[in-house]
Design a binder for these strands. Structure first.
Length: 255
DNA sequence: ATGCCTATGCGACATAGA
């Protein structure tokens, strides 16, 4: 059972690349972020014709998450609980083949300090509260998404880079670490404990050819899911394609 | 010290991303 997280940076701009990756790398479940479209305009028929079940939580212009799966999905949550005034489409959750799976697009938080950074930290606190309730299920849960957090200095090509950025602030890292202390396993970190794995390369300044990347896309496993961990990695070659997203697909394989 | 790119929206530049 291969579960992937992929920030596609725009559905319509990425559709051919996305379909190629689904066909060639064969995830069973693909959690998508930044679909950048309202749900009505997500090309559900295209994916259904290719054999995928679709759940979509979109909004106009920005954000938006979706879950594609080979087996049928039962939606369990749309939008992150804890703030009825939050209208940003950043969380979608479903039961698929006996596994609870979430697609997460955590707020970027720049510029910091400021209201966007405050929103990010508040969102992470809400995520922690909901994640705690998911752990109480005792069943396999995978929280897959773009967390917009660089967890460690060895998760970036140069620890001095991004120093003032919301993605590597101590507060952002502390909220991420709090999730791990709840009992979640960072799948890629577990398989590659020495770091040096990137999931994002900026479009600017030749970041991809220079391999100036960092790791912000994560798959967190509940204990029952971590017991089944077989492998985890990044499909980094996808980043080198024409019209690629600035993120690469990141995945975990469960027994 | 700054901008470098890319995608979207009723668009001819602004906003957001990370």
């Amino acid at each position: 059972m291969k579960i992937a997280s992929f920030n596609i940076n725009g559905t319509n701009a990425r559709l051919p690349r996305l379909l190629e990756w689904l066909e060639s790398h064969k995830p069973d479940i693909a959690c998508l972020q930044e679909i950048k479209t309202i749900s009505e305009n997500f090309p559900v028929e295209v994916f259904q014709d290719a054999g995928w079940h679709c759940l979509v939580h979109g909004q106009k212009g920005f954000n938006g998450v979706a879950i594609l799966s080979r087996e049928p999905s039962q939606e369990t949550q749309r939008g992150l609980p804890g703030d009825d005034t939050d209208e940003q489409a950043r969380y979608l959750e479903a039961d698929i083949a006996g596994i609870r799976v979430a697609s997460i697009y955590l707020p970027n938080g720049n510029p910091q300090p400021g209201p966007k950074f405050d929103y990010k930290l508040a969102w992470m606190a809400r995520l922690a509260a909901h994640a705690q309730s998911l752990l109480a299920l005792g069943s396999p849960v995978v929280l897959a998404g773009d967390y917009n957090v660089i967890p460690h200095d060895d998760d970036i090509w140069d620890p001095r880079a991004m120093r003032e950025d919301a993605l590597r602030q101590p507060e952002s890292r502390a909220h991420y670490q709090a999730l791990l202390w709840q009992g979640w396993t960072d799948a890629v970190r577990s398989v590659h404990p020495r770091g040096g794995i990137w999931t994002f390369w900026d479009y600017q300044a030749g970041a991809w050819p220079r391999d100036h990347g960092f790791r912000i896309d994560h798959l967190l496993l509940s204990p029952a899911a971590a017991d089944r961990l077989a492998d985890a990695d990044v499909d980094r070659e996808i980043r080198g394609a024409e019209k690629a997203s600035d993120h690469a697909p990141t995945w975990v394989s469960l027994r």
